[in-house]
Write a protein that binds this DNA or RNA. Structure first.
Lengths: 278, 278
DNA sequence: CCACGTTACGCATTTCGTAACTATG
DNA sequence: CATAGTTACGAAATGCGTAACGTGG
């Protein structure tokens, strides 16, 4: 099993269109078509049902897509980790979504550094929403602070803290007058919360953009209370959402990690979280 | 990052000798040498310190070896799992070392089949000592019954049962007269037990060979008591080893598995184990 | 009939093997 | 000085692109 045909396959499976996939890969359609066909004959498995005007994945193709992503991530991770191991000062990289640390980032770093004089130096890598699992899987980070739920494939994690959620409202919003809000007031059922959060995130590139939209009354996103504490903004009010599931912040790391440095950082994070809870 | 140069790297890293590695790969030394050198320049990292008469891994090379094995296993697994998904009757494959199931195999299969009329059919794959983790990681099996300790990289597991250990002795062995034996009688300390078990396993290709050697007084291997129960043999006696750590049998499966079929099989195994304990 | 995947054919790049070279223990 | 890794060069194989084809919506 070669990696390049597999990456070609992933492109086609994601686009479900040979021409677009070829463009994305920087090659022309014919070699792509042949590579897929050869992959199919080598495996002895049909991966796509194709007519001239539609390309769909077979069940086997669906399986291969998930597995191929895992394998290709692992391949990238191998290279990255080797490079990082050779870098002059091998650091631990901790991926954090900006302001998605519930205020724990600084205490964790302090605790980690003070716990052991020989503790590995930690570099913080700020990243976008939902980017942490990919960074871990592709070997660009050693650990990450991430809100549940996230894709645990290939990762281990420990929950750190659970924060109440608040809703951000325009000051002129009808609900802004209330002390606290219920999901039903927002037209949400408990099962819809995580989907709703994903959707509202997509509305702005960062928190500032999103809060601007809030001020305009275009959106009413849910946040962990720690975000509200740090981002007061004229024209925007935060109200507790009493029955929303809490925002659980966890620390995650590659499941196969054997690094004692990662273990030390995780320990520091858990001890900070316990202290905070108590 | 391509897969073939990486597999070349693994061969060299394992052999620490370009000529032998080339032979193992079925190519000649020159292209191998160049492939490694190109890998190094592409990564910008030195992987081997080499003189004409010695090849050693650098720290970065050591990291890459671990990571490369994971990635290449994942690559093989992708192909295998796609093939299995396309096979006419998608079965669950359960890897078991012959007679390494503590008598749980048949009850587990029965429980699984009877728990749900729609339960996936299970095919048992018999394998050699310590082969199960590889089969799981390379996608040739979906779950495995395996004795701890084993390499958990990329795997999840649940312990099922802990069995007392016995030592197999020639009937003429001085210790054969005793009712039970202590590790010290065998010249072992508790920390040495697992290493000792690995060594003694290497002495024979299967249980029959090993018991022949026992009869000759050449070796005194440790077994879970379930093995002793099933393999009475003239000239060989089994004696409990009171202070040996128990043989813990676990069920393991790929960590990234999302299959409900695997989950059902694991549940069946755990429920059989609990019933047996009670 | 138009769009899109496929086949046909020739070219470029990569990869391999044999032979000669070099450096270390 | 012998062994093992490397360089040199020609050959085979693999992969790619342009052009032409077929088929289904």
């Amino acid at each position: 099993m070669e990696s390049r045909p597999l990456s070609y396959f992933v492109a086609v499976a994601e686009e479900l269109n040979f021409a677009r996939a070829a463009e994305r890969l920087g090659i022309s359609p014919p070699p792509l078509s042949r590579a897929i066909r050869r992959l199919e004959t080598d495996l002895g498995v049909t991966l796509f049902e194709r007519t001239t005007h539609s390309v769909t994945l077979t069940p086997a193709g669906t399986v291969l897509l998930t597995e191929a992503r895992i394998a290709l991530d692992a391949l990238r991770a191998a290279g990255r980790r080797a490079q990082r191991a050779a870098s002059p000062e091998p650091k631990l990289v901790l991926a954090v979504k900006a302001d998605g640390d519930a205020g724990l980032l600084e205490p964790i770093l302090t605790r980690h550094a003070s716990s052991d004089p020989a503790a590995a130096p930690v570099a913080v890598r700020l990243c976008a929403w939902h980017e942490q699992p990919r960074l871990l899987r592709q070997g660009e980070a050693d650990a990450a602070l991430v809100h549940e739920p996230f894709d645990r494939t290939g990762l281990d994690s420990e929950a750190l803290v659970a924060e109440p959620r608040v809703v951000a409202l325009a000051a002129t919003h009808p609900l802004a007058g209330k002390d606290h809000v219920a999901l039903a007031d927002l037209g949400l059922r408990p099962g819809d919360v995580h989907r709703f959060i994903d959707e509202t995130r997509g509305r702005g590139h960062d928190l500032a953009q999103l809060l601007t939209l809030v001020g305009l009354g275009d959106v009413t996103p849910l946040f962990p209370v720690s975000v509200a504490d740090r981002y007061p903004r004229p024209g925007v009010v935060y109200r507790p959402v009493t029955d929303a599931p809490p925002a659980v912040l966890a620390i995650a790391w590659p499941q196969q990690s054997r690094s004692t440095d990662v273990a030390a950082l995780v320990r520091a994070a858990m001890s900070v979280a316990e202290a905070g809870q108590g």
